[in-house]
Design a protein around this nucleic acid. Structure first.
Lengths: 216, 216
DNA sequence: TGATTTTCATACCGTCTCGCACAATAATAA
DNA sequence: TTATTATTGTGCGAGACGGTATGAAAATCA
């Protein structure tokens, strides 16, 4: 068992549901998705078996199947969870009233936190390293990816546009191109983090590139 | 059978070998590696079965095993082939006596050719999209990747340094940071190509970013 | 021609994989 | 207490997987 047991009262109150009829679940769906996500991030789609997922979540295969559907459905749910977590962090950075350099600095710091957790076995970006490589043939997943690209480009463009409006960048700055370059830096970070380039080295690259972008 | 049969005379002459003793091979190792590479690029390591490789190369499994060793060995040989092909193209671009913009333009054009062959099912960069995601746990493969990063960074830095020396870029240009950004652009191109962003769109991004980099 | 060498091709082995049947279990409802 | 409902856990079965043993085939050598 990986997940801790909780009393039925806790569970139902937490979820705001009425008392459920049958035998209570021994797992928490949200926790299980998180554990599945972490495993998918490490080993990808094809190389992750249902037995592996079962071990990681503490659920046995039939429970997994009943709760989330087949492997593909669980993978998509994991990807959605990843995107939601990521998006939440980005939105928080948007609300902060800080200048462009600090905003970018925090953005990449947050990203690298995600990419390099577990220094012995860094994951990189789930979308880039795993989804794009071994699940891109799936039209639904492909559509999610393309949407993510656009969201990211737009987010960066917003940052630069705001900076121009505040006078932090010259009026002549090409915000759309800068946004693409910022996205590209994120991609590089993800790939190199996964390949084992140490965090400290990546921090330097990020710092230097931010400075270069903000001088444009 | 996928590979065409050739007469024994052709084969041996081609290879410059003396006449081989036993039954002649029905395949050409170099061709087979190329076919295996293409399949690995499409479906990754784990999702590619030996049966798939057998069908793609026209060799049956025992022949595959005898010629290249097990699946992992064949994967590494494919990766080496990919790197060699790539490196050859880059070296050719180094020899050309052209300015920085044109050199970069040709560089990314060549890369995108590789990434987007087969528009219906674009591959992206093998190293980034497939090797880094599902084989990075292997120390030998990881070492090859890190070496590739360094080679690429150095190549780009050489381009920018040469450009500075020729007066195409200001003395103040930070060639190492520019090189990282150029690598990052390559990574972005690979990822988006694989996700299905059309070549025409990528060409625009590349053009704009090159211009931005060369104005720095 | 017959022996030798190398490769091809079939078939097989043990293992893993996914998905599902089935019964036991633990809660609520009556 | 008994029935009902939802979940758990064992375990099965058909198929795919990586890898290999074995014998037939096709060349050279003597």
């Amino acid at each position: 068992m990986v997940q801790k047991k909780k009393s039925a009262a806790d569970e139902t109150v937490e979820k705001g549901e009425g008392k459920r009829r049958g035998r209570p679940r021994a797992y928490e769906p949200d926790v299980a998705i998180g554990q599945a996500l972490d495993l998918f991030r490490r080993t990808g789609y094809a190389a992750t078996s249902l037995d592996d997922l079962s071990a990681a979540t503490g659920m046995n295969r039939p429970s997994l199947y009943g709760a989330f559907g087949d492997k593909r459905a669980l993978y998509i749910k994991s990807y959605q969870r990843y995107r939601d977590d990521y998006t939440a962090k980005v939105i928080a950075l948007f609300k902060a009233d800080i200048d462009i350099r600090e905003r970018l600095r925090r953005f990449y710091a947050a990203a690298l936190d995600i990419y390099t957790t577990d220094a012995d076995d860094p994951r990189g970006c789930f979308a880039v390293m795993t989804v794009a490589s071994d699940a891109i043939a799936d039209p639904e997943i492909r559509a999610m990816m393309l949407e993510s690209f656009k969201e990211l480009d737009d987010a960066f463009a917003w940052c630069f546009r705001t900076a121009v409006a505040r006078g932090e960048l010259p009026e002549t700055a090409n915000v759309d191109v800068l946004a693409k370059m910022a996205s590209a830096l994120l991609n590089l970070s993800s790939i190199r983090a996964r390949a084992g380039v140490p965090r400290s080295e990546l921090d330097v690259v990020v710092k230097d590139v931010i400075e270069q972008l903000c001088r444009a």
